[in-house]
Amino acid sequence: MSDLAAIWCASVALACAILAVTRPAIVHALIWLVAALLSLAGCFFALGAGFAGAVQILIYAGAIVAVFVFVVMTADASPEALARERARLAQGWRRPAAAVGLVALPLALGLLAGGTSPAAAPDSGPSLGAILFGPWAVAVEVASGLLLAALMGARHLGRRREEP
């Protein structure tokens, strides 16, 4: 039952993702992005990864998208911009589609080729924190350094320069 729920949620996420990248209006695209992220969160819950689902909702669909919303408020939403965006998409979608096809083909072939070895152990392994702050502690430190660098970079890029 939960398998079906997971597949259903992931399929919805894929559909929403396709809509998100093809809408000409930025607000619509953003709403589809939120929908895709939320349905992915549902998929995570169905897979038994409650922590990841909660984080997906809180941080991804909450915090990160909120930042997007602030920026989108500054974007141009006039009918001309909409038409221009539509024209651009109609004009140049073939080459990217071909390239994506090239990427997707070996992915699909790999799925067909790889055997499905039954390795499903019960989900009672060590807790997530023990992994993150035990053997992966260095990676967590590096990631925190990345966040700090991003913070400083955003601060630097966002500062107001004096007009010459």
């Binding site: 390239a99 994506v100 070996p106 992915l107």
Partner: peptide, 21 residues
């Protein structure tokens, strides 16, 4: 990005080819 896509595709094909059994 297109260049990266082509490179990824090539790498995937190689990966698929080497793990084919």
């Amino acid at each position: 990005a297109l260049g990266a896509a082509l490179g990824t595709a090539a790498l995937l094909v190689i990966a698929w080819g080497t793990t084919w059994n």
